[in-house]
């Protein structure tokens, strides 16, 4: 009797959790649609944190944005890369929807020729096994980075 109750309770909980995640979960990488270089809605349905975004931005295993871009506001970090354009004033040049699209999939948002990786893409050719099927950043981290990029005004 007690066991049956436990089992049905667990079943109920599973159903509840599933329905909650189906409603509130972030958009999966392969469901993201970039239109005219824009992605208007937040991947999580919520705004990100610019403070956390700054951390993901400089973290070499996450955004690692300084590998390729100069950001004059991060003067505590040495050696800014020169591959991509400097990000100083990037929020003056691009809207939030454009910034989100570029971070998510620069090849879809800007040009297939860009060297910039897509940070919320799940399909790659021959990835290292531990990264297979996974985007570089989570949906939350993308929103945090977008929130941080929005602060880069001149």
């Amino acid at each position: 009797m007690q066991r049956a109750f436990k089992a049905s309770f667990a079943g109920l909980m599973t159903v509840t959790l599933l329905s909650v995640s189906a409603l509130a979960g972030p958009i999966a990488p392969d469901k993201v649609k970039i239109t005219d270089g824009e992605l208007k809605t937040s991947l999580t349905g919520k705004p990100g944190s610019d403070v956390k975004g700054a951390e993901w931005f400089k973290n070499r295993k996450l955004g690692n944005c300084l590998a390729c871009h100069v950001n004059s506001k991060m003067t505590d970090e040495q050696f800014h890369g020169e591959i991509g354009p400097p990000l100083d004033g990037v929020a003056d040049r691009y809207s939030e929807a454009q910034l989100r699209a570029i971070v998510v999939n620069a090849k879809a948002a800007l040009s297939d020729k860009t060297l910039m990786p897509g940070f919320y893409v799940s399909h790659y050719t021959d990835p290292l096994k531990k990264f297979a099927g996974k985007p570089i950043l989570t949906a939350e981290q993308v929103e945090d980075v977008v929130a941080y990029l929005k602060t880069l005004k001149e």
């Binding site: 300084l66 590998a67 390729c68 040495q78 050696f79 800014h80 890369g81 020169e82 591959i83 090849k107 060297l115 990786p117 897509g118 893409v121 790659y124 050719t125 021959d126 990835p127 290292l128 990264f131 996974k134 570089i136």
Partner: peptide, 23 residues
Amino acid sequence: RVGQLDMSCAGCHEDNYGKMIRA
């Protein structure tokens, strides 16, 4: 182009040689 970063040898060593990639 391969890997999670979706890059080829050419992306760095042909198109961007001479530039700094971080340090």
